[in-house]
């Protein structure tokens, strides 16, 4: 077994941004401590509040990774709604607020063993598999230079100084392209044309494009699922 740490690290030339790394480290430390407190504290309400720390930390990491929309959703849905639900749950089940030794099972060693093994295994696999891979410095998903280069390579259209209308026409004139590819090219073409500060020049725009175009069906299915869960929760919890 050899650990392939050095072979083919992606984006090896991407510059290291010290401020971001420091930010990551601080947030990650908070998250790990928070997570440990969630599963060890003797007070359910405290556990819920520590969970807030973890969730907020995750939202901050999303911002670091240029996923602003997911970060905002995380704050709104998780911290705004789910934590409140948890607090209601704690309140309605009259769990003892203070010093509840019973919150953890007496035989927790097995769980700890499994968790440590799992963590070790995952770390090994990740270090082995991804080694020194670096994230690209430009995290705007749709508009990084390689996306433009890919587009030009795949379609043979030069993009420099072209208007959106021209690009769309040229994509539509392509032959031998499947419908899915064509719609992907069209999206890229529009983004390239909007490259200088248009509304699509952000990952939020790209997310909305993806949800309401290529992932429309799963999106609708999710809404059905939420309705079903809503009705299910009412039916289960109602008194009778």
């Amino acid at each position: 077994m050899t650990i392939a740490l050095t072979i083919g690290a992606a984006n090896a030339d991407a510059p290291i941004n010290v401020a971001r790394n420091v930010g990551f480290g601080v947030i990650a430390a908070f998250m790990v401590v928070g997570a440990l407190r969630v599963v060890t504290t003797r007070n359910v309400v405290h556990a819920a509040l520590w969970l807030v720390v973890v969730l907020a930390g995750a939202a901050a990491q999303f911002v670091l990774l240029a996923a602003e929309f997911v970060a905002i959703t995380q704050v709104l849905v998780y911290i705004g709604a789910i934590i409140v639900l948890f607090l209601f749950g704690v309140m309605l089940t009259k769990a003892p607020i203070e010093g509840d030794a019973q919150l953890t099972r007496t035989r927790w060693f097995g769980g700890a063993l499994v968790a440590v093994l799992l963590c070790g295994l995952l770390s090994f696999a990740l270090l082995d598999g991804f080694g020194e891979d670096r994230l690209p410095s430009d995290t705007r998903l749709t508009l990084r230079p390689s996306a433009v280069a890919d587009f030009e390579g795949a379609t043979g259209i030069t993009t420099e100084g072209r208007s959106e209308t021209e690009l769309v026409e040229e994509v539509n004139a392509l032959e031998g392209v499947s419908g899915a590819d064509r719609s992907r090219f069209l999206t890229t073409a529009r983004n390239i044309a909007d490259r200088d500060g248009g509304p699509l020049d952000s990952n939020t725009g790209a997310v909305s494009d993806a949800i309401f175009a290529s992932y429309l069906v799963p999106f609708e299915v999710t809404s059905v699922l939420l309705t079903a869960a809503l009705i299910g929760a009412i039916v289960i919890a109602r008194k009778e």
């Binding site: 077994m1 093994l117 799992l118 295994l121």
Partner: peptide, 25 residues
């Protein structure tokens, strides 16, 4: 249920360990 959960995760860990071992070997 939690005992079963522990078995489940332990089993998954062992299986994953085998796969990782094979893959890195």
């Amino acid at each position: 249920v939690q005992a079963y959960g522990a078995y489940l995760f332990a089993g998954a860990t062992i299986l994953a360990g085998i796969f990782v071992f094979i893959a890195s070997a």
